[in-house]
Amino acid sequence: MGFKLLSKLLVYLTASIMAIASPLAFSVDSSGEYPTVSEIPVGEVRLYQIADGVWSHIATQSFDGAVYPSNGLIVRDGDELLLIDTAWGAKNTAALLAEIEKQIGLPVTRAVSTHFHDDRVGGVDVLRAAGVATYASPSTRRLAEVEGNEIPTHSLEGLSSSGDAVRFGPVELFYPGAAHSTDNLIVYVPSASVLYGGCAIYELSRTSAGNVADADLAEWPTSIERIQQHYPEAQFVIPGHGLPGGLDLLKHTTNVVKAHTNRSVVE
């Protein structure tokens, strides 16, 4: 069995187990497998329904001669939608809004960016022009300005110390501490036991640490421990890039980060 097929099978099995364990909360999309990078042309966006009122959005972007996937989250909030992270750029984010209108038909009224990198804030200006209120932590807003990236308009308070959590509509926002970046936030959907790890969490097929220019490698494993301790009931975990899975993604990420750190020390 090929690795790609095995990865998709694991996603399907995880979703099936969740649907059985929580039949009222989960209505997993039966329309197909989780979209992969090879299936999404740059400039297009796919939506994948995880649970009743919960979707991931998947886009792709060219970077350094390669094409990478990027995940975000959409959560229903009454007759409105909360968006977590842009679709990595203005063109993708405009396509995301169009796809949401086509498939869901509810307005996106608020959006949260989970850290300051372009795959999370690139497209904020498109959201703002569409009347979406954009939010991020003060740290993310400051770092985005320093980096020359787009800056969300509103500040999220109460997320300055490791372990801080605040309720934001249908989700809980959690600051686990520094990891992929010093400002990275985690998003949890309690009604569906869905954990969105953003770039602080890796997919299972990833074996290298990737972009760690703004990471705190020493603190990252401790931050992941905080996530595990705060959300032990999480059933569906979405990484910032690639295929979702279960809580095993947290341990896998820790292993990859520690291996990278150990290699760096040896070198």
Rank of each mutant, 00 (worst) to 15 (best):
S181W: 02
L47V: 10
L97K: 00
L247K: 05
L247R: 11
D216T: 11
T60V: 11
T36W: 07
E44A: 11
S223D: 02
I238T: 03
V266N: 08
V189N: 01
G53Q: 11
H241Q: 01
S113F: 09
A66I: 14
E203M: 02
S139K: 13
G2M: 10
F174Q: 02
I50L: 10
H115L: 01
G177Q: 02
A21V: 12
I20T: 06
L6Q: 08
P232A: 11
W88C: 01
A144W: 03
S22Y: 15
D64W: 12
K251F: 05
N255E: 05
G240A: 04
S70E: 03
S62K: 14
S181G: 01
G122K: 15
F26L: 11
N71I: 03
G163N: 11
L83C: 03
A19V: 10
T134A: 05
A111C: 10
T153H: 08
D248T: 10
V265A: 09
A87H: 00
V212W: 07
Q103R: 11
V132S: 03
I224P: 00
K102W: 14
E99P: 02
S16P: 09
E99S: 14
D183E: 05
S181F: 01
T182I: 11
N211K: 10
G177I: 01
F3Y: 05
G65F: 07
T109V: 13
Y202L: 15
V28I: 09
H115W: 00
E267P: 15
L24P: 12
A165I: 07
V257N: 05
N71F: 00
I186M: 10
P35A: 07
T114W: 02
A192T: 07
G53C: 04
Q61G: 13
N184R: 01
N92V: 03
P107M: 13
D29C: 08
R110I: 05
A144M: 06
V146T: 14
T222N: 10
E172N: 05
H260T: 05
L97D: 01
G240P: 02
L24R: 09
F168M: 15
L106T: 11
W220I: 01
L5Y: 15
Y34E: 12
R142V: 11
D119Y: 01
A192P: 07
L195H: 01
G210K: 14
K102T: 14
P190E: 06
T222R: 10
G245H: 04
E225H: 11
D183S: 00
I40P: 13
S7R: 13
S139G: 11
G89Y: 04
T109L: 13
A90C: 05
A133N: 05
S160E: 13
Q229E: 13
G78M: 09
G197I: 01
D248K: 10
G246P: 05
H57M: 01
Y48L: 07
D214T: 15
S205W: 10
S223F: 02
H117C: 00
A133S: 09
R120P: 01
L9W: 07
A98Y: 06
A200V: 09
V237S: 01
V75K: 01
K4G: 04
A66E: 11
S223M: 02
Q228W: 13
A95Q: 13
S139A: 12
L250H: 02
G169A: 04
L106V: 15
V124P: 04
L156D: 01
Y196T: 01
F174T: 01
I84K: 02
Q49F: 10
L143F: 11
A136D: 03
A59M: 13
K251R: 08
A209L: 12
S208H: 15
V37N: 07
T153A: 09
V45E: 03
D164L: 07
H260S: 10
A59L: 13
E150N: 15
V146R: 12
L249M: 06
I201P: 01
I17H: 14
V75Q: 02
V146K: 13
N71R: 01
I238D: 00
A90R: 14
Y48C: 12
I151W: 10
V187R: 01
L10N: 07
I186Q: 00
K91W: 14
V171K: 00
S22V: 07
P176Q: 02
F236G: 06
T261R: 09
P221V: 13
S70M: 15
V212E: 13
F26N: 07
D119M: 01
A19R: 07
L204I: 13
S155C: 15
V194P: 00
A133L: 15
E225W: 07
L24A: 08
L83Y: 01
S193L: 11
S205A: 09
T222Y: 10
Y12N: 09
L156E: 03
G148W: 05
L10C: 11
P176W: 00
N255V: 09
L243H: 10
D79V: 13
L185S: 03
A21P: 06
Q61R: 08
V37A: 07
M18D: 05
T36D: 10
V171L: 06
K8D: 09
H241E: 00
S223A: 08
V112W: 03
M18N: 15
S191L: 06
P176D: 01
S62V: 13
G210R: 11
A87S: 12
K251S: 06
A144I: 14
T153P: 04
Q228K: 15
G122Y: 05
A94C: 11
R128H: 12
A15E: 07
S155D: 07
L156F: 11
V37L: 08
P35C: 11
S27A: 08
P232E: 06
D183G: 01
E101P: 15
R141K: 14
Y202T: 09
I40V: 10
S30D: 08
Q229V: 10
P107K: 14
R206F: 14
E147M: 06
L204K: 08
G131F: 05
L13P: 08
V187I: 08
E147D: 08
G169K: 03
P152V: 04
S160G: 13
V146F: 14
L249G: 01
K91N: 09
P239V: 03
S30M: 14
G53P: 05
A133W: 12
G198P: 00
W220D: 00
E80Q: 13
S160H: 14
D214K: 09
N211F: 14
V54P: 01
P23H: 07
L156H: 03
A21G: 09
T14D: 13
A144T: 10
P239G: 04
A136H: 04
V189L: 06
H260R: 09
R110C: 04
R142G: 11
S223I: 04
I17T: 05
T86C: 07
V37I: 08
H230E: 12
T109F: 10
S16A: 06
S191V: 07
H230Y: 07
A130K: 15
V266P: 08
M18V: 07
V121D: 01
P221L: 13
Y34Q: 06
L73I: 11
E33N: 11
V67E: 12
A111T: 14
G89R: 03
G198M: 04
T60Q: 09
R110H: 09
D125Q: 11
V132Q: 00
A129Y: 15
I151G: 05
S7T: 12
G72M: 01
S16E: 11
A200C: 11
Q235W: 07
D118Y: 08
